[in-house]
Simulated assay, not measured.
Amino acid sequence: MIRAQRHHYNLVRRHGQRIVTYAMAEATDISFRWWDSDRFDRRWRRRMTELSGPKWHAFKDDIELVACTYPDIVALAGLFASPHLRFLPFTGKERDLRQFIREVRERAATGYSLDAAGKRDPLIRWIEEEPSDRSLPFYPWRPPGCPAPEQVSVP
């Protein structure tokens, strides 16, 4: 948990609070949807057993579950916060998509594969919805090749 807190702090230092907050929200949403479908939660369940004993029971807002999921959520948020990694699925290159999925597998979802993911998989839905999210006024990233917004000077 301490390592995850340091990682979170470093993400904020590197990318800024706004970007990391947005990335944490996305990572939390995806992670808890995986939890709801009993996918990629082995590490969480192991941590819960270590923290609360073998007969633990938790709801999404239980502090124990939040503590046990935090390391994986921060790791996935690190992927989303990185402008380079975030836009890999959208380059049109198969190798970039494979690298993105490899990063997801290594960071937060051991065993994740596109072949096994269905249309309702939260990461697949994120990939489908992300391009339209770029038009939202609070979207904090600029896709590669997009010019910086014009600076308006105030007299």
Rank of each mutant, 00 (worst) to 15 (best):
D72K: 10
A148Y: 07
P131F: 08
R18L: 08
Q5A: 10
R33K: 10
T110A: 12
T28W: 01
P71G: 01
F87W: 14
D62C: 08
N10I: 05
Y70N: 03
T49I: 13
R3S: 10
G145V: 14
Y70G: 01
L11C: 06
A81W: 03
L85G: 11
H84I: 09
E94P: 03
G145R: 14
Y70T: 02
M48I: 07
L123A: 04
I101L: 15
A67D: 10
R14A: 14
N10E: 09
G53S: 08
T28I: 00
E50H: 12
W34C: 05
K60I: 11
G53L: 07
Q17S: 14
E106Q: 08
L79N: 03
K93V: 09
R46D: 09
W141A: 01
P155E: 09
L136D: 07
L76G: 03
I73G: 02
P143I: 00
D38W: 11
T69G: 15
R6P: 05
Y70R: 07
M24G: 00
A27N: 05
S153V: 07
I2E: 07
D61S: 11
R47T: 12
A116C: 06
I124R: 14
I73K: 02
W35C: 13
N10C: 05
P122H: 11
H7G: 02
K60Y: 07
M1Y: 04
F90N: 13
I19Y: 02
L85T: 10
Y9P: 00
G111H: 07
G111I: 04
P83T: 09
E26D: 08
A108C: 10
R3G: 10
I2G: 00
G145P: 12
T91F: 11
V154H: 02
S37I: 09
A109F: 08
G92S: 06
L51K: 13
A108S: 08
A4V: 06
G118L: 15
W34M: 03
F138S: 13
I127H: 06
P71T: 00
S31K: 06
Q17D: 12
I127R: 10
L51P: 00
R102A: 13
T49R: 13
S82A: 08
A4H: 04
W126Y: 15
C146Y: 10
G145E: 15
A108E: 01
R3W: 07
L85M: 13
V74M: 04
Y70V: 00
D29T: 13
R47H: 14
V74G: 03
P149R: 15
D62V: 03
D36E: 02
S82R: 05
P54A: 15
W56K: 03
M1Q: 06
W44E: 11
Y9W: 00
S37N: 15
S52I: 00
A58G: 02
